[in-house]
Amino acid sequence: MIYEEKPDQGILLDGIGLTYGKGASERQVLQNVSLKLEPGEFVAVLGPSGCGKTSLLNILAGYLRPTRGTVTINGKRHTRPDPGVGVVFQQANLFPWLSLARNIEFGMRMQSISKARRRERVAYFLELMGLETSAKLLPHQLSGGMKQRAAIARTLATDPEIVLLDEPFSALDALTRENMQLHLREIWHKTGKCMFFITHDVDEALLLSSRLIVMHPDPGRVVEDFANPLTEGAADPSFARIRSSADYSRLREHLLARMDGVNTLI
């Protein structure tokens, strides 16, 4: 992926701190998190449960106001949710009264995009997600994998700068999950969106990401941030090739150890 580097392009988190509660029950959940997310990056965020990954995502999305620090997108402060930052939840969270196609269309309807353009984009995303034959079905008539694909399509349809995904595949069975991972990577290649992908699954992070971030709890902070050497360079390496590469198991062990708080060298 080639893109022009501009100084204020991308998503900038500057000194983010977050404290829950007051007085005795005060709890610092995030401390001084500063990150620059470039357009076209696939950032996987790893970390033990409770280290503040979801909190960080909520701040990025604009659902939560940080106690300290700012979020800037392409030079503009970002303080409340808007279609510039797409969010995919753990549960697909589709609107149950709308058909799949209407769900995908929803964001564009909110932005008053013309009907012809909407129809065109809905058709495009239905095809991209392999959901053409299910366009008229209601969410409760879909399988978990289909729902999550529809949720991703719905988010992409508003053409966000960045897509935040909070463990989007963790509720799916192993086979469906692998399919979804392949699918997501294909979509990332096609759309070139910046992805901010929270996961518990080290393998998933290694297979998909172009950049790996590890967080530690108490207080939540970034302790590791590096380009994923496994996906660097190669245009579209197959999962099998990544898994069988020499570095794979070493990186995997390293990340697992880092998530546990043990320091090892790469």
Binding site: D82, P83, V87, Q91, N93
Partner: peptide, 13 residues
């Protein structure tokens, strides 16, 4: 659910 509202707001509602 807060997710319902938040999701909708992120889609521009």
């Amino acid at each position: 659910s807060p997710d319902r509202i938040n999701g909708a707001r992120s889609l521009g509602a």
